[in-house]
Computed example of a mutant assay.
Amino acid sequence: MTDTPDSPPETAAERRARRQRERYYSASQWTLIWWRFRRHRAAMAAACVLGVMVFLGLFAEFFAPYGTTERNRDYLSGPPQIPMFCDDNGCSLRPFVHGTRTERDPVTLRAVAMPDPETRRYVSFFVEGQPARLLGVIPIQTRLVGLEDGARLHLWGTDQMGRDVFSRTLYATRTSLSIGVAGVLISFVLALAIGGAAGYFGGMVDNVIQRFTEVVRVIPIIPLYMGLAAAMPKDWSSTQVYFAMTIILGLFGWPTLARRIRSQLLSIRGEDYVLAAELAGARPARVIATHMLPSFTSFIIVDLVISFPYMILSETALSFIGLGLRPPSVSWGVMLQQAQSVQAIEQAPWLFIPAVFVVLAVLAFTVLGDGLRDAADPYSEAR
Protein backbone atom coordinates (compact mmCIF):
# COMPACT_ATOMS: atom_id res chain seq x y z
CA MET A 1 0.00 0.00 0.00
CA THR A 2 1.37 3.40 -0.99
CA ASP A 3 0.15 6.79 0.12
CA THR A 4 -1.81 8.78 -2.50
CA PRO A 5 -2.47 12.51 -2.47
CA ASP A 6 -6.15 11.86 -1.58
CA SER A 7 -5.42 9.46 1.33
CA PRO A 8 -3.99 10.28 4.76
CA PRO A 9 -0.41 9.15 5.43
CA GLU A 10 0.03 5.66 6.89
CA THR A 11 0.59 5.60 10.64
CA ALA A 12 3.31 3.54 12.33
CA ALA A 13 0.76 1.06 13.72
CA GLU A 14 -0.84 0.57 10.30
CA ARG A 15 2.62 0.09 8.77
CA ARG A 16 3.49 -2.62 11.31
CA ALA A 17 0.16 -4.37 10.75
CA ARG A 18 0.66 -4.29 6.96
CA ARG A 19 4.14 -5.75 7.28
CA GLN A 20 2.86 -8.50 9.58
CA ARG A 21 0.16 -9.40 7.06
CA GLU A 22 2.68 -9.49 4.23
CA ARG A 23 5.02 -11.65 6.29
CA TYR A 24 2.19 -14.01 7.22
CA TYR A 25 0.92 -14.50 3.66
CA SER A 26 4.43 -15.02 2.27
CA ALA A 27 5.48 -17.53 4.95
CA SER A 28 5.80 -21.25 4.23
CA GLN A 29 3.64 -23.92 5.83
CA TRP A 30 6.40 -24.95 8.26
CA THR A 31 6.97 -21.34 9.28
CA LEU A 32 3.27 -20.91 10.06
CA ILE A 33 3.29 -24.13 12.10
CA TRP A 34 6.29 -22.86 14.07
CA TRP A 35 4.62 -19.52 14.75
CA ARG A 36 1.47 -21.22 16.04
CA PHE A 37 3.43 -23.77 18.03
CA ARG A 38 5.54 -21.03 19.63
CA ARG A 39 2.39 -19.51 21.11
CA HIS A 40 1.47 -22.79 22.82
CA ARG A 41 3.23 -22.26 26.16
CA ALA A 42 2.57 -25.71 27.58
CA ALA A 43 3.97 -27.38 24.46
CA MET A 44 7.04 -25.14 24.53
CA ALA A 45 7.62 -26.06 28.19
CA ALA A 46 7.25 -29.75 27.33
CA ALA A 47 9.74 -29.37 24.48
CA CYS A 48 12.23 -27.75 26.87
CA VAL A 49 11.80 -30.60 29.38
CA LEU A 50 12.43 -33.19 26.67
CA GLY A 51 15.38 -31.19 25.38
CA VAL A 52 16.98 -31.18 28.84
CA MET A 53 16.41 -34.91 29.24
CA VAL A 54 17.92 -35.67 25.83
CA PHE A 55 20.89 -33.40 26.54
CA LEU A 56 21.60 -35.03 29.90
CA GLY A 57 21.26 -38.48 28.40
CA LEU A 58 23.53 -37.81 25.43
CA PHE A 59 26.31 -36.40 27.62
CA ALA A 60 25.75 -38.70 30.60
CA GLU A 61 29.48 -39.51 30.77
CA PHE A 62 30.13 -35.87 31.71
CA PHE A 63 27.14 -35.16 33.97
CA ALA A 64 27.13 -38.52 35.77
CA PRO A 65 29.81 -38.72 38.49
CA TYR A 66 30.21 -42.49 38.09
CA GLY A 67 29.57 -45.34 35.71
CA THR A 68 26.60 -47.67 35.78
CA THR A 69 28.49 -50.50 37.49
CA GLU A 70 30.74 -48.56 39.89
CA ARG A 71 30.00 -49.48 43.49
CA ASN A 72 30.55 -47.84 46.86
CA ARG A 73 30.65 -50.77 49.26
CA ASP A 74 30.74 -48.39 52.23
CA TYR A 75 27.44 -46.73 51.27
CA LEU A 76 24.91 -49.49 50.53
CA SER A 77 21.34 -48.21 50.21
CA GLY A 78 22.61 -44.81 51.32
CA PRO A 79 20.25 -41.83 51.41
CA PRO A 80 20.68 -38.86 49.03
CA GLN A 81 23.42 -36.37 49.87
CA ILE A 82 21.88 -32.95 49.31
CA PRO A 83 24.40 -30.08 48.92
CA MET A 84 23.82 -27.32 51.46
CA PHE A 85 25.33 -24.04 52.57
CA CYS A 86 24.31 -24.09 56.24
CA ASP A 87 23.95 -26.64 59.01
CA ASP A 88 24.00 -26.69 62.83
CA ASN A 89 27.70 -25.84 62.79
CA GLY A 90 27.30 -22.65 60.77
CA CYS A 91 27.28 -21.51 57.18
CA SER A 92 29.77 -21.67 54.34
CA LEU A 93 30.21 -19.87 51.04
CA ARG A 94 30.81 -23.20 49.30
CA PRO A 95 28.27 -26.02 48.99
CA PHE A 96 29.02 -29.08 51.07
CA VAL A 97 27.54 -32.41 52.08
CA HIS A 98 27.84 -34.28 55.32
CA GLY A 99 30.17 -37.24 55.60
CA THR A 100 28.81 -40.70 56.25
CA ARG A 101 29.05 -43.25 59.00
CA THR A 102 27.79 -46.81 59.25
CA GLU A 103 25.43 -47.81 62.04
CA ARG A 104 23.75 -51.10 62.92
CA ASP A 105 19.96 -51.20 62.79
CA PRO A 106 18.82 -52.35 66.26
CA VAL A 107 15.89 -54.32 64.79
CA THR A 108 17.27 -55.93 61.62
CA LEU A 109 20.97 -55.74 62.64
CA ARG A 110 21.83 -54.70 59.08
CA ALA A 111 24.46 -52.07 58.38
CA VAL A 112 22.85 -48.73 57.55
CA ALA A 113 24.67 -45.76 56.04
CA MET A 114 23.86 -42.53 57.87
CA PRO A 115 25.00 -38.93 57.38
CA ASP A 116 27.55 -37.64 59.87
CA PRO A 117 26.61 -34.02 60.72
CA GLU A 118 30.03 -33.41 62.29
CA THR A 119 31.88 -33.94 59.00
CA ARG A 120 31.82 -31.62 56.02
CA ARG A 121 32.93 -32.50 52.51
CA TYR A 122 32.93 -29.66 50.02
CA VAL A 123 31.49 -29.99 46.53
CA SER A 124 33.75 -29.20 43.58
CA PHE A 125 33.11 -28.87 39.89
CA PHE A 126 35.04 -30.35 36.95
CA VAL A 127 36.69 -33.08 38.99
CA GLU A 128 38.62 -36.11 37.77
CA GLY A 129 36.79 -39.41 37.44
CA GLN A 130 37.07 -42.79 35.78
CA PRO A 131 38.01 -42.72 32.06
CA ALA A 132 35.02 -42.92 29.71
CA ARG A 133 34.09 -42.08 26.13
CA LEU A 134 31.66 -39.24 25.49
CA LEU A 135 29.12 -40.29 22.84
CA GLY A 136 31.15 -43.48 22.59
CA VAL A 137 33.96 -41.69 20.73
CA ILE A 138 35.54 -38.79 22.66
CA PRO A 139 37.80 -39.84 25.58
CA ILE A 140 36.84 -38.02 28.76
CA GLN A 141 37.88 -38.19 32.40
CA THR A 142 36.41 -34.95 33.76
CA ARG A 143 33.07 -34.98 35.56
CA LEU A 144 30.84 -32.00 36.20
CA VAL A 145 30.51 -32.43 39.96
CA GLY A 146 32.22 -34.33 42.77
CA LEU A 147 33.89 -33.93 46.15
CA GLU A 148 37.23 -32.20 46.45
CA ASP A 149 38.82 -34.82 48.73
CA GLY A 150 38.10 -37.68 46.33
CA ALA A 151 35.21 -39.07 48.38
CA ARG A 152 32.05 -40.35 46.74
CA LEU A 153 29.12 -37.98 46.11
CA HIS A 154 25.69 -39.55 45.79
CA LEU A 155 23.15 -36.83 45.04
CA TRP A 156 20.21 -39.27 44.82
CA GLY A 157 21.56 -41.97 47.10
CA THR A 158 22.62 -45.50 46.23
CA ASP A 159 20.89 -48.83 45.67
CA GLN A 160 21.37 -52.11 47.53
CA MET A 161 24.66 -52.74 45.73
CA GLY A 162 26.07 -49.26 46.39
CA ARG A 163 25.61 -47.98 42.82
CA ASP A 164 24.89 -44.28 42.35
CA VAL A 165 21.21 -43.69 41.51
CA PHE A 166 21.83 -40.28 39.93
CA SER A 167 24.44 -41.60 37.48
CA ARG A 168 22.41 -44.68 36.59
CA THR A 169 19.29 -42.56 36.00
CA LEU A 170 21.13 -40.39 33.46
CA TYR A 171 22.38 -43.43 31.58
CA ALA A 172 18.92 -45.00 31.80
CA THR A 173 17.42 -41.84 30.30
CA ARG A 174 19.61 -42.23 27.23
CA THR A 175 18.74 -45.91 26.87
CA SER A 176 14.98 -45.55 27.27
CA LEU A 177 14.67 -42.50 25.03
CA SER A 178 16.88 -44.03 22.33
CA ILE A 179 14.78 -47.20 22.31
CA GLY A 180 11.69 -45.02 21.94
CA VAL A 181 13.21 -43.07 19.03
CA ALA A 182 14.53 -46.14 17.22
CA GLY A 183 11.29 -48.07 17.75
CA VAL A 184 9.19 -45.19 16.42
CA LEU A 185 11.44 -44.82 13.35
CA ILE A 186 11.17 -48.53 12.54
CA SER A 187 7.40 -48.50 12.97
CA PHE A 188 7.17 -45.32 10.86
CA VAL A 189 9.02 -46.89 7.93
CA LEU A 190 6.80 -49.96 8.07
CA ALA A 191 3.64 -47.87 8.43
CA LEU A 192 4.67 -45.65 5.54
CA ALA A 193 5.30 -48.60 3.22
CA ILE A 194 2.31 -50.73 4.25
CA GLY A 195 -0.21 -47.94 4.76
CA GLY A 196 0.96 -46.12 1.64
CA ALA A 197 0.49 -49.20 -0.53
CA ALA A 198 -2.96 -49.88 0.92
CA GLY A 199 -4.16 -46.30 0.49
CA TYR A 200 -2.76 -45.76 -2.99
CA PHE A 201 -3.68 -49.01 -4.74
CA GLY A 202 -6.90 -49.84 -2.86
CA GLY A 203 -9.00 -52.76 -4.01
CA MET A 204 -7.60 -56.25 -3.40
CA VAL A 205 -4.26 -54.90 -2.21
CA ASP A 206 -6.03 -52.81 0.43
CA ASN A 207 -8.16 -55.76 1.57
CA VAL A 208 -5.17 -58.08 1.97
CA ILE A 209 -3.14 -55.47 3.86
CA GLN A 210 -6.03 -54.61 6.16
CA ARG A 211 -6.57 -58.26 7.07
CA PHE A 212 -2.86 -58.60 7.82
CA THR A 213 -2.97 -55.43 9.92
CA GLU A 214 -5.89 -56.75 11.94
CA VAL A 215 -4.01 -60.00 12.60
CA VAL A 216 -1.01 -58.05 13.93
CA ARG A 217 -3.22 -55.85 16.11
CA VAL A 218 -4.99 -58.75 17.84
CA ILE A 219 -1.78 -60.59 18.79
CA PRO A 220 -1.59 -60.62 22.63
CA ILE A 221 1.48 -58.55 23.39
CA ILE A 222 2.50 -59.86 26.82
CA PRO A 223 2.46 -63.59 25.86
CA LEU A 224 4.29 -62.69 22.65
CA TYR A 225 7.02 -60.85 24.56
CA MET A 226 7.26 -63.69 27.05
CA GLY A 227 7.90 -66.12 24.23
CA LEU A 228 10.42 -63.83 22.54
CA ALA A 229 12.21 -63.18 25.84
CA ALA A 230 12.49 -66.93 26.42
CA ALA A 231 13.79 -67.38 22.86
CA MET A 232 16.59 -64.84 23.32
CA PRO A 233 19.89 -66.65 23.97
CA LYS A 234 21.13 -66.20 27.51
CA ASP A 235 24.66 -65.54 26.27
CA TRP A 236 23.62 -62.46 24.29
CA SER A 237 25.41 -59.28 25.26
CA SER A 238 23.55 -56.23 26.54
CA THR A 239 24.02 -54.57 23.12
CA GLN A 240 22.40 -57.49 21.31
CA VAL A 241 19.46 -57.51 23.72
CA TYR A 242 19.13 -53.73 23.27
CA PHE A 243 18.88 -53.99 19.47
CA ALA A 244 16.52 -56.97 19.70
CA MET A 245 14.26 -55.03 22.07
CA THR A 246 14.23 -52.04 19.72
CA ILE A 247 13.39 -54.12 16.66
CA ILE A 248 10.61 -56.00 18.46
CA LEU A 249 8.95 -52.78 19.64
CA GLY A 250 9.19 -51.34 16.13
CA LEU A 251 7.84 -54.44 14.37
CA PHE A 252 4.64 -54.42 16.41
CA GLY A 253 4.06 -50.66 16.68
CA TRP A 254 3.15 -49.81 13.08
CA PRO A 255 -0.56 -50.82 12.59
CA THR A 256 -2.18 -47.70 14.07
CA LEU A 257 -0.05 -45.25 12.08
CA ALA A 258 -0.40 -47.38 8.93
CA ARG A 259 -4.18 -47.16 9.07
CA ARG A 260 -4.04 -43.40 9.52
CA ILE A 261 -1.75 -43.02 6.51
CA ARG A 262 -4.05 -45.30 4.51
CA SER A 263 -7.14 -43.24 5.34
CA GLN A 264 -5.40 -40.00 4.38
CA LEU A 265 -4.21 -41.40 1.05
CA LEU A 266 -7.65 -42.80 0.25
CA SER A 267 -9.16 -39.35 0.75
CA ILE A 268 -6.77 -37.55 -1.62
CA ARG A 269 -5.85 -40.13 -4.27
CA GLY A 270 -8.56 -38.78 -6.58
CA GLU A 271 -7.31 -35.16 -6.42
CA ASP A 272 -6.34 -33.41 -9.65
CA TYR A 273 -2.64 -33.02 -8.78
CA VAL A 274 -2.37 -36.77 -8.09
CA LEU A 275 -4.02 -37.63 -11.41
CA ALA A 276 -1.76 -35.15 -13.19
CA ALA A 277 1.33 -36.80 -11.70
CA GLU A 278 0.11 -40.23 -12.79
CA LEU A 279 -0.63 -39.02 -16.33
CA ALA A 280 2.86 -37.52 -16.46
CA GLY A 281 4.27 -41.02 -15.97
CA ALA A 282 5.35 -40.79 -12.31
CA ARG A 283 5.80 -44.10 -10.54
CA PRO A 284 3.55 -44.94 -7.57
CA ALA A 285 6.40 -44.54 -5.08
CA ARG A 286 7.16 -41.06 -6.44
CA VAL A 287 3.49 -40.05 -6.46
CA ILE A 288 3.10 -41.10 -2.83
CA ALA A 289 6.36 -39.62 -1.55
CA THR A 290 6.47 -36.41 -3.60
CA HIS A 291 2.84 -35.42 -4.11
CA MET A 292 0.59 -37.14 -1.55
CA LEU A 293 2.53 -37.39 1.71
CA PRO A 294 3.54 -33.68 1.86
CA SER A 295 -0.14 -32.72 1.98
CA PHE A 296 -0.48 -34.19 5.49
CA THR A 297 3.14 -34.36 6.68
CA SER A 298 2.35 -32.22 9.72
CA PHE A 299 -0.25 -34.72 10.92
CA ILE A 300 2.20 -37.59 10.48
CA ILE A 301 4.68 -35.73 12.68
CA VAL A 302 2.02 -35.31 15.34
CA ASP A 303 1.23 -39.04 15.22
CA LEU A 304 4.91 -39.87 15.54
CA VAL A 305 5.33 -37.63 18.59
CA ILE A 306 2.28 -39.17 20.25
CA SER A 307 3.71 -42.66 19.56
CA PHE A 308 6.80 -41.98 21.70
CA PRO A 309 5.04 -42.38 25.08
CA TYR A 310 3.71 -45.80 24.08
CA MET A 311 7.17 -46.98 23.07
CA ILE A 312 8.74 -45.66 26.28
CA LEU A 313 6.03 -47.19 28.46
CA SER A 314 6.31 -50.51 26.62
CA GLU A 315 10.06 -50.69 27.18
CA THR A 316 9.73 -49.65 30.82
CA ALA A 317 6.94 -52.13 31.55
CA LEU A 318 8.68 -55.04 29.83
CA SER A 319 12.00 -54.35 31.56
CA PHE A 320 10.16 -53.90 34.86
CA ILE A 321 8.65 -57.42 34.68
CA GLY A 322 11.89 -58.94 33.42
CA LEU A 323 10.96 -59.40 29.74
CA GLY A 324 13.00 -56.54 28.32
CA LEU A 325 16.54 -55.38 28.92
CA ARG A 326 18.67 -57.33 31.36
CA PRO A 327 21.46 -56.15 33.65
CA PRO A 328 24.13 -54.88 33.23
CA SER A 329 22.06 -52.79 30.79
CA VAL A 330 20.38 -49.91 32.54
CA SER A 331 17.02 -48.35 31.68
CA TRP A 332 14.15 -46.88 33.63
CA GLY A 333 12.43 -50.25 33.75
CA VAL A 334 15.57 -52.10 34.83
CA MET A 335 16.13 -49.61 37.65
CA LEU A 336 12.52 -49.84 38.82
CA GLN A 337 12.90 -53.61 39.11
CA GLN A 338 14.85 -52.99 42.30
CA ALA A 339 11.93 -51.05 43.82
CA GLN A 340 9.37 -53.87 43.66
CA SER A 341 9.74 -55.06 47.25
CA VAL A 342 8.12 -53.61 50.35
CA GLN A 343 11.59 -53.34 51.87
CA ALA A 344 12.68 -50.95 49.12
CA ILE A 345 9.56 -48.82 49.56
CA GLU A 346 10.14 -48.54 53.29
CA GLN A 347 13.93 -48.25 53.52
CA ALA A 348 15.02 -46.76 50.17
CA PRO A 349 12.23 -44.65 48.62
CA TRP A 350 14.78 -42.81 46.47
CA LEU A 351 14.90 -45.88 44.22
CA PHE A 352 11.61 -44.61 42.76
CA ILE A 353 13.27 -41.53 41.25
CA PRO A 354 13.38 -43.15 37.75
CA ALA A 355 9.58 -43.38 37.91
CA VAL A 356 9.48 -39.56 38.06
CA PHE A 357 11.46 -39.45 34.81
CA VAL A 358 9.02 -41.88 33.19
CA VAL A 359 6.04 -39.73 34.19
CA LEU A 360 7.75 -36.51 33.05
CA ALA A 361 8.73 -37.99 29.68
CA VAL A 362 5.25 -39.38 28.97
CA LEU A 363 3.51 -36.15 30.01
CA ALA A 364 5.97 -34.04 28.02
CA PHE A 365 5.48 -36.09 24.85
CA THR A 366 1.70 -35.98 25.29
CA VAL A 367 1.61 -32.20 25.75
CA LEU A 368 4.07 -31.74 22.89
CA GLY A 369 1.84 -33.83 20.62
CA ASP A 370 -1.19 -31.73 21.57
CA GLY A 371 0.74 -28.56 20.76
CA LEU A 372 1.88 -29.86 17.38
CA ARG A 373 -1.65 -30.99 16.57
CA ASP A 374 -3.01 -27.51 17.29
CA ALA A 375 -0.17 -25.86 15.37
CA ALA A 376 -0.65 -28.11 12.34
CA ASP A 377 -4.37 -27.37 12.17
CA PRO A 378 -4.86 -23.99 10.44
CA TYR A 379 -8.36 -23.71 11.92
CA SER A 380 -7.09 -24.16 15.49
CA GLU A 381 -5.81 -21.28 17.58
CA ALA A 382 -2.73 -22.33 19.63
CA ARG A 383 -2.66 -20.90 23.12
Rank of each mutant, 00 (worst) to 15 (best):
L155V: 13
L192T: 05
L363P: 05
I194E: 10
Q343H: 15
I186K: 02
F201S: 01
I353V: 15
S167K: 00
L192A: 06
V305H: 06
Q20T: 06
G180I: 03
E61V: 03
L325I: 06
E128V: 08
R19A: 08
A64F: 02
L313V: 11
F188A: 02
G51R: 03
G333L: 05
V330T: 15
F201A: 05
A230M: 07
F352P: 10
L190Q: 05
M311E: 03
I222V: 11
S237Q: 05
V302L: 03
Q29F: 11
T256N: 02
A17P: 06
A42S: 06
E118Y: 14
T31L: 10
I186C: 04
W350H: 12
V189I: 12
M84Y: 07
P8D: 14
Q343G: 15
R326I: 09
L170R: 10
G199W: 09
R71N: 02
S77V: 00
F37I: 06
S238M: 09
L318S: 09
P220H: 09
G150K: 01
I194Q: 04
I321E: 14
R260Y: 15
F308A: 01
G333C: 07
G150R: 00
V358F: 04
A376L: 08
T366Q: 10
D272K: 05
I194M: 09
R143S: 04
R326N: 09
S341N: 09
F55W: 12
R38D: 14
E278I: 04
V241H: 07
V287R: 00
Y122L: 02
F188D: 00
R211K: 14
L109T: 07
T11G: 15
L363E: 06
G183N: 07
R15V: 14
H154K: 00
S92E: 11
A43C: 03
V305E: 03
I261N: 10
I306K: 00
A111I: 08
R259P: 01
A132I: 12
T69Y: 04
S295V: 12
A64M: 02
G253W: 01
G322K: 08
T239W: 10
P80T: 12
A282R: 03
A277G: 10
G99E: 10
G129S: 10
F299K: 08
R94I: 07
E278K: 10
V287Y: 01
F96G: 04
N89Q: 14
F63G: 02
L251F: 12
S307P: 12
T2R: 14
P223F: 11
A60R: 03
M311N: 04
F308Q: 03
T108K: 09
E22P: 14
G195M: 07
A244W: 15
L32W: 11
G162H: 08
D159R: 00
L275W: 09
N72P: 00
I301L: 15
L351G: 09
T175D: 06
G281F: 05
L50H: 03
P233T: 10
R286H: 03
R23Q: 15
T102Y: 06
R262T: 02
G371T: 06
T256E: 03
L313Q: 09
T169V: 06
W34Q: 13
L275K: 02
F96M: 06
E315W: 04
